[in-house]
Design a binder for these strands. Structure first.
Lengths: 216, 216
DNA sequence: GGTAGTTTGTGATACAAAGCACACACCCAT
DNA sequence: ATGGGTGTGTGCTTTGTATCACAAACTACC
């Protein structure tokens, strides 16, 4: 799975390849690091070294969105980071909901890495009556039957799926039905989604299974 | 990060593109599901529908490794699954070690999805004296100073990195130094590794950050 | 056992992404 | 203010990947 997507190029401008979009957050991350270490300017050469890619590719990628650099100098770090964040929609916060409050779901809602990046988990859902009503990491677990209304009331834009594989497709269908167009899927399947919905899969087993080819 | 790799095409035969290798585990997964539901034979068409890809691509991918199908019929499910598992090195078990026993490392060692797929976590490491010696999910946490000897004694082939970002690169260096050539990295950076070492990154924040582009 | 209907395996083709290389812009030192 | 040095932006080339399309191989049914 790793990274399924039915592209829906938002906004106007040229059509940007999805691979490019997927690289942008990595640029943002490195820019943030350089900014933190007090640097003001960075060249595509330096970025490339850090990210293990050619400077030309970085310049090409950036050129899809504008001309951010100065010849003979490089890129102003703060400015470029800001531009990229705006392009990616990271200049605001996003509300998310987690569906499936088993072991994995609990780990996800208590993961401290989302909020600092502007992803706020505002709701947790589960199908089991034993779990609904419990409070986990400060979230009152809701019944899946409330999914659609909660998504609308809380302005939730991202769904995170942590249910067992046998319920994953139906949960994803429910999220789509509720109007969600971005799904982070922890279940080990390639879900079917309509065009316009983006799904990213998190699947450590798949990653391991393709690595063994190189060491077998 | 998502999926960095310095290719090292093992064995002989033609050079197989890495994208192809990364798709094979997905084929294996679907084949297992079909086998479980009692099917005996499957066509590239059916596989394609399930995986949201063209039948031609599946046939091309498989053709890198041999001729597994029968015209007018399709593929024998059990046979193809077995072949692919052998190709990927999944016809055996693999020993892994987790480095970093914080919140994330604990979640990883207690994740029940690895063992059924033949990935056995045999050792856990941490740098902190407070944690070394503790038993977590049946594993006695060892000091990182023992990394190299443990890797050798326990025949560990896979390293799983769950340390904070500021120690990730040094831990990865230590794993490489210990002879590890396959690393699953949960830390949010693009690590530098020598050629011949494969790193796969698990990074939900990066996934989210590239999805927002499509809904912004 | 012949024929209609499938589905594979694969060259050829089309499409997409990455890399090259250089004109041009800008900085800085003098 | 002028010139040497540096690094961008981008058209062009190369490399890589996906798709097409069809002959060949097999099945099933009469």
């Amino acid at each position: 799975m790793a990274t399924t997507n039915n592209i829906a190029n938002t906004g106007s401008g040229p059509i940007v390849p999805e691979v490019v979009i997927q690289r942008l957050p990595r640029y943002v991350r490195v820019l943030t690091q350089f900014a933190d270490s007090g640097e003001k300017v960075i060249s595509s050469e330096q970025l490339g070294t850090r990210l293990q890619m050619t400077p030309a590719q970085i310049r090409k990628d950036l050129s899809y969105f504008g001309r951010f650099g100065k010849q003979g100098r490089g890129y102003d770090i703060a400015m470029l980071e800001g531009q990229l964040r705006t392009i990616l929609g990271l200049d605001r916060t996003w509300n998310a909901a987690v569906v499936g409050m088993g072991r994995l779901g609990r780990a996800v809602v208590s993961y401290p890495g989302f909020a600092p990046e502007g992803f706020n988990i505002l709701a947790a859902f589960d199908a089991s009556d034993d779990i609904v009503g419990q409070t986990i990491s400060g979230l009152q677990v809701r019944s899946i039957s409330e999914l659609k209304t909660s998504v609308q009331n809380l302005d939730i834009k991202i769904g995170i799926v942590t249910v067992p594989i046998e319920h994953a497709q139906e949960v994803i269908d429910a999220l789509v039905d509720a109007g969600i167009r971005s799904i982070l899927n922890y279940a080990p399947l390639s879900p079917q989604v309509p065009k316009g919905v983006t799904v990213r899969g998190i699947d450590p087993v798949l990653s391991l299974q393709s690595m063994t080819y190189y060491i077998r």
